[in-house]
Design a protein around this nucleic acid. Structure first.
Lengths: 226, 226, 226, 226
DNA sequence: AATGAATGAGACTTCATTCAT
DNA sequence: GATGAATGAAGTCTCATTCAT
């Protein structure tokens, strides 16, 4: 049944109806509830199962030579697994709120990943100015990227690109000089997108030409009708 | 009303109840249905509206100098808008199945983006081995990455990283080294993840050390109990 | 197993899940069904078991001296047992519909109780105008009363009060003063409660001042809006 | 719809399926949820509605002459209403845990009832050693008693009996001298009922003759089989 | 044309009862 | 004979969509 849930969640994601899972498993819905108290618990169990093996993999790489390639290899490996598994994908990309992991599992994953990261950084294979949270976020982004390329290209290509960006030799320093989000930030008058306040010059009213144009058309219409 | 839908979808995503949208708009649910035949059509309308302005922005940049920075700037600009707009985020990341765009809108977007991309490539500012679909996928990935980093860092940091990867000076060229997706691909015996078929040597049975270990433990258990 | 059912029903009442009972008994649910055809039959068995012991107690008191105190003592004893036993409580208070007793058991209980009652009445210790059904009903009422006072008072206090009401010296004789339930009884125009038809004078339209007032307000509102 | 809920809860109690309520109201189940967020909220609304009128009635009696009869009359009146209304019945008898009342309503009811009680006590019409909680508990008990007598007697008879017990002229002093429930109380070896520990003499092992007999039979059986 | 009440399918969950082992 | 996994009907609740007013 865990297998059926695994497949169902992998194929359809967290929102797949529980009845579908039961049908896949060839049992009634009630039988699922005999084993897992809620659907959420079942999802957690599936995620935990998947991540236990992911964590194992990370640990098995921790002591090896060539920390850089181990780290990048692990990244690629996780992304590949998530490409074909909607559940892992969601667990990685879930924003705060929904808990997909059993207690402690996410922490273990973070620790194992952090260990790989630090060793790779120590070896000079990963730029020093990224941290665990960067890698976690990048990982989730890579998964989405790969899923969208999945249909028509070699797997891993986009992730390889992203990995390049982590290498110390990459062109740009990560923009540490970019300002923290200001509290009284201004917003586009048309669409409300926050505007990156330029430090000098006339302050922007719109987030781009599109909205500027739209505002212009509105002014014209108002003049005409008024 | 479109404005209300826009805000609701931006804040809560595609799954926001239609009643919430109607309430935000200060109208009855029936009135929404007078204007849009289904909720999905409303979502499409919202997405189309947003992308019209995005397309306008792209076109306004098409003729400008410095194609590289125009291209990267546009990428960042789209990502920033999606960071605060769940609807754009979903439209960019939506896999096949749900149509978020009105007929032709996605094509227009693709064309405008492709124009920026080609100009930037022609100017030598973007590596030659990426295509439109790569950029589309990367864009969606960046959105997810940024949303996850949103809480605790300057916006755009992760996207800047990813942009680096598109620059010609980046370390790796990946495309033609990775094998084409094999049709009768093998899969990990434990977790079913597709395996990249090694060109030489013994074919892999597992997707990594974790699953190899798991298989080993299973064999041990079977021996003991048998 | 009967012991387990007894405890479970006592603690949680008739609605306790059968699985809980099976778990308490340390057997599978199927085993319960091997012994009792339905859950209801199990409940009946439990109630029967309890009442057998209650009936025994009643009979053991039947021949004794001091019939008044025997009767009142038995009443208190039953109530005390029911206070800590949800199942007995429900069996005593169950209105028509669900049968809690095995065939004949309730009759035996009634006979034993009636014997105590008649002896006590013969001895002048219980007023003559109460019958078995009164006592049965009062018993159930006392159980509810005691359960509600259980938390913060000495047990039996409220039942002692009620017993007072059964003593011949009690103030009121009510039976024949109150009218028989009229068949075509009228009902309160507001809340529908049956109205005791006054024998003389203008027939009541409301069950009390509260509903009269409510009707008045409604008339005012109707006048204002009309 | 409130009317339908009122009738359904009155007839079947808190556990009536919501679909039944909807059917009674002639609407779909969803329509009920448009008006009340949960079934519990609907029950609360019904109870609150009923008790508002009960509270009004109590208040309308508060200033009147003859506080004793007002108090007893109110008691009877409430009991009569609950006799034909399972919902009121449950609200009065509900033990801790489930909240049936909207915030403040139960307190208002208690205050109004307490006012009647105190006035009647001041007038010497109700014995001084009962308090609000006694009356509340007694009220619930009377409801149960009356419901059981409903079928075959004049309504109110049993409650009148119970009221007698509250009058100062009643025979017995309420047992204030009875001991508080002791912490390490002993229990019947057979059925587990708590035993009122006698202050002197040999401590009881059983709650009554019935259980003593049962234990005896068990000993015989053990001897025979051993 | 707008309203928002009504609908009803479908989601999650519980639990009495059955049945293969 | 015992087990406990499996069943499936029924309950609560949500929400896209319809429709009387």
């Amino acid at each position: 049944m865990l297998q059926a849930a695994l497949e169902a969640f992998a194929a359809e994601g967290r929102l797949v109806p529980l009845d579908d899972i039961a049908r896949r498993a060839g049992v009634g819905a009630g039988t699922v509830y005999r084993n897992f108290p809620t659907k959420e618990a079942l999802f957690t169990a599936v995620i935990t199962d998947r991540f236990e093996s992911i964590i194992e993999e990370a640990r098995s790489l921790a002591g090896a030579d060539d920390p850089g390639e181990r780290f990048y290899g692990f990244l690629m490996w996780v992304v590949e697994r998530a490409m074909f598994n909607h559940a892992i994908c969601e667990a990685l990309a879930l924003e705060e709120g929904i808990k997909a992991f059993a207690a402690g599992v996410e922490e273990e994953f973070n620790e194992a990943l952090d260990a790989l990261l630090r060793r790779a950084q120590a070896a000079g294979d990963v730029r020093a100015d990224v941290d665990l949270r960067d890698v976690r976020a990048l990982m989730a982004g890579c998964v989405v990227t790969e899923r969208l390329r999945r249909a028509d290209g070699p797997p891993g290509r986009m992730t390889a690109l992203a990995c390049d960006a982590l290498r110390p030799s990459a062109v740009t320093k990560v923009r540490d000089e970019s300002p923290p989000p200001s509290r009284n930030e201004s917003r586009c008058e048309v669409c409300g997108t926050p505007l990156a306040a330029a430090r000098t010059g006339r302050p922007a009213r719109f987030c781009g030409a599109a909205c500027r144009q739209k505002a212009h058309r509105r002014r014209s219409a108002a003049t005409k009708s008024g």
